[in-house]
């Protein structure tokens, strides 16, 4: 295991409650920079909740209580004086369902810059182009930047959302089943994209698709009933898991 450098993301003894429901139980996990980590497990196991910890999206839900440390580059994003908006800018997120704003394609990508106080027009234009290229969408939309994002197909919308996340130069991308709402073709495009993006970003991806997890990730974490059961190199998890529950899940015996 490569633990020489400080992990980009880390939780220590993390517990999370929704009211009386103990949703995450004592989770300690470190994610190194420029790694792709897949979070797998049956529905309701807490993997999405865990993902949403890192950009504090759980803050919006009623009755959430968090104990333990959530570190980003060694700093606790809940307890330090980091503003939540900064955390979210540095830790981008792509959601399960494409959620473009009902605005133009250009405005969608530029929005993150706007809210972070960038007003230099040329810089914004360059960034929008760069981000759309990174998201492999530029060629398809370069002539229709002023058109509504809602006119794009589902797959294109999802890549637009990825471009939108990339535009504010995050170092981490959180992806919550980014391909599950798409058709197979769009889905494989997103997967290729993740493969490209891992060169520059640390990526945390929640997925129900075992093949996808095996293909794109370096490491895999298996969650079950709010517990982290096993965390190891993806190869190890899929070929020779230590835990029987992991074995059962990835061979499709439950879930």
């Amino acid at each position: 295991m490569n633990m020489r450098q400080m992990p980009a993301l880390e939780t220590r003894n993390l517990n999370l409650h929704y009211g009386t429901n103990h949703a995450l139980k004592n989770i300690s996990l470190g994610i190194s920079e420029n790694f792709v980590v897949a979070l797998i497990g049956p529905s309701g196991c807490g993997k999405s909740t865990y993902l949403r910890l890192f950009n504090r999206m759980n803050d919006m839900i009623d009755g959430v209580k968090i104990d333990g440390d959530v570190l980003f580059n060694g700093k606790d994003i809940y307890k330090s004086n980091l503003r939540v908006e900064h955390v979210r800018k540095k830790i981008g997120m792509v959601f399960q369902k494409p959620n473009p704003f009902p605005k133009t394609i250009f405005e969608n990508v530029a929005y993150g810059l706007k809210v972070n106080g960038v007003s230099n027009k040329k810089f914004i234009e360059e960034t929008v182009e760069k981000s759309l290229k990174q998201a492999a969408l530029w060629e398809e939309v370069k002539d229709t930047l002023k058109k509504s994002a809602l006119a794009l197909s589902g797959g294109q919308q999802q890549r637009l959302c990825i471009a939108r996340a990339l535009a504010v130069e995050p170092s981490v991308l959180l992806m919550d089943e980014p391909a599950s709402a798409l058709d197979p073709l769009s889905s494989s495009k997103i997967e290729e994209l993740i493969y490209e993006l891992k060169k520059k970003y640390t990526i945390l991806i929640v997925t129900h698709n075992m093949q996808q997890a095996a293909r794109v990730s370096d490491k895999t974490a298996f969650f079950y009933l709010g517990q982290l059961i096993e965390y190891d190199d993806t190869k190890q998890i899929f070929i020779n898991p230590k835990e029987e529950r992991t074995q059962n899940y990835i061979t499709g015996r439950f879930g």
Partner: peptide, 12 residues
Amino acid sequence: GIREASYAVGAT
């Protein structure tokens, strides 16, 4: 989803 998208890029 609109709220989440906006917050996720760092909007207040």
